[in-house]
Amino acid sequence: MDSFSTKVRTFDAFPKIDPHKTQRSSSGGFSTLVTALFILLVTWVEIGGFLGGYVDHQFIVDDKLTSDLFINLDMLVGMPCEYLHTNVMDVTHDRLLAGELLNFQGMNFFVPDIVQMNSENNDHNTPDLDEVMRETVRAEFNVAGTRMNEDASACHIYGSIPVNKVAGDFHITGKGFGYADRHRVPFEKLNFSHVIMEFSFGEFYPMIKNPLDFTGKIASQKLQSYKYFMTAVPTLYEKLGIEVDTYQYSLTEQHRAITTDETGLPSDIPGLYFKYDFDTIKLLIAEKRIPFLQFVARLATIVSGLFIVATYLYKLYSKTITLIFGKKFAYKDTEKLDGGLLGS
């Protein structure tokens, strides 16, 4: 029994060289120091990556039953509020008189410095997780359906309107164009120059930037049509147990001047059109961290691999120096071993 326990204690699957049989050298010491520093650096990076986690992007089927949601709007149109007609129409032929829920405030038309005017809104980036979490300040409009100074030269339109979660169209037109009205806006009064400060879907997060935010157009003609085509994708952000359930959308746009026929009637309806649809796929962006045991196994594998690579590199270096300069030069800084038949 004692013999078996002794064998177990002395068993080593990876036999090592006895210290008194090894030879030390300055080049070997330097390579060991470099290897140790490099391993410490890699370990530090791996620990930082483990503590910081990683951002995981996944596409899943949107199984959340939501029949309606909100369109959040804040924009300025270069026409008096009394001349404007706002409406929502979707594929179910459900019509919403958005003018009863939105707020209309007459004011002078102006363009803030941060707004990009007359530019193509084709370059859109998905906000990263940290940016969204930093800017998710949920808000609501305090009022709805108010009207002030409707005869001013421009109209500030803002508020949230509920819409069905189906393809639809929110549009702003002049009175008498597209819908029967007792009054028709004269052609010379039409001006669909506009500045968009906010256009989003879902809960209102005013700090999250969307493709239409801080953009605008200056109408070159009275009869002008601006059409924005959007596909909204449900997006769920998760970090540290906090969830932000919102929508992001892709955007294409089309704008053109409308011609008139021989009788003076326009060939199309001038105005602003926001045509939207919803994707059935949901984007999940979450910060995750690998399990601790998996992290330990990963770190051990990396460190072991570095030791092996460093060993082979040092052997390759030694052979190269020996071939080029000879053994005498290669082993000049190697200590001498004492003992043996040929020792001192």
Rank of each mutant, 00 (worst) to 15 (best):
L190Y: 08
C155A: 07
F109P: 10
G29E: 03
Q23H: 12
F192E: 04
N125S: 09
E287G: 15
F141D: 13
V132N: 03
T126F: 15
G99R: 03
G48R: 14
A144W: 06
H85K: 08
E203Q: 10
N122R: 12
K239V: 09
L341G: 01
D94W: 10
L41P: 05
H156T: 03
T43C: 14
L51V: 15
L190R: 03
T215N: 02
K239C: 08
F329N: 10
L51I: 15
A232R: 11
A144N: 09
S193Q: 10
Y179K: 09
S119K: 15
S220G: 14
S153Y: 00
E335P: 12
G202K: 04
P291I: 02
S250L: 03
N191Q: 02
L272S: 04
L101A: 08
V91S: 11
V244T: 14
F4Q: 15
K327I: 14
A232Y: 10
L323A: 13
E188P: 03
I71L: 03
K239L: 13
A13T: 09
G178S: 02
R95H: 04
S220I: 14
L306Q: 07
Q116N: 13
R24I: 12
L73G: 01
K332E: 15
P80F: 06
E188Y: 14
V296M: 02
R9S: 14
P162W: 01
M133A: 07
Y179P: 00
Q105N: 09
F177H: 14
F325D: 04
